[in-house]
Write a protein that binds this DNA or RNA. Structure first.
Lengths: 138, 138
DNA sequence: ACATCATCGTTGCATCCGCAACGACATTGA
DNA sequence: TCAATGTCGTTGCGGATGCAACGATGATGT
């Protein structure tokens, strides 16, 4: 029996992830031209409030160098600000500006709507599907 | 209700895909230091026999420039050869060498074994999970 | 036949990613 | 106290990616 790439689970997973990310990026491109790392940093800060680069690195599956550069770009655009941490001056505190909070509020709506579409596309299996994803990543 | 990145389906999908690809790459790294595009080109040629860059581009979800460069690297390593197409000289025919075929045979075993592990990890939902992936990519 | 337009594969270029330094600071242990 | 070690965020650098040319070749329409 020959090996068929098209039936290979890691391949299918990668293709699906790329396609879904591409579709979502097309949605928020009009609202804000964010890269995926920038989107993840923004979304995490919107939920967590102030956080250090290290905190974000640990939570959103990105290298610290990528988080660092994404944060600098978001700072340049006025979406977040950096400040010193009291007590540990190695740390840098990142938090959203008002503009950043407003942007996140708009993107959260887009994201929820998009996710609703995906779940509709998945039908009744959606919940099991998401549980399976967590099992694979763990 | 606040937006939580960790529950966002495109994020979970991306994390799972990255993690699974990383695990699989670790398996075949010992056998052959292939990039993901190289692996896909090799796998497709193993299944399809001779094919043009364009054929592969259409089948394995990669840009034509990436397929072109991956093919050149595989050629340098003696895994595939390029030849002219009779009748349409724009096309380049790619096919595996004997070494390439032998390499693919070894990697196919690794791949099947790895996939079996993943399906075991997914349990009874494995089949529905793969069907859902196809639905998302389509 | 010939001009026009489409297609194929390659390459240049700007950008992004991943890893390994690095400087600054904190913690540890004697 | 102070040297050794660990941690934080940034940056340099090599390599990969994505897009837009480009030259070469085919197809089309008159």
């Amino acid at each position: 029996m020959p090996f068929v790439l098209d039936e290979f689970l890691p391949y299918r997973l990668s293709v699906a992830a790329t396609e879904v990310s591409r579709r979502f990026a097309a949605r928020y491109a009009a609202e804000a031209g964010l890269s995926i790392p920038e989107w993840r940093v923004l979304a995490h800060l919107g939920h967590s409030g102030a956080a250090s680069v290290r905190d974000i690195t640990a939570k959103v599956s990105l290298e610290k160098s990528i988080v660092s550069r994404a944060a600098s770009r978001l700072e340049d655009r006025g979406i977040l600000r950096k400040s010193a941490h009291d007590g540990d001056r190695r740390l840098i505190v990142l938090e959203l500006t008002e503009d950043g909070t407003a942007l996140m509020a708009r993107l959260a709506e887009l994201a929820e709507a998009f996710q609703a579409e995906l779940r509709h596309q998945l039908g009744a299996d959606a919940h099991r599907f998401e549980a399976a994803l967590k099992r694979l990543a763990g």
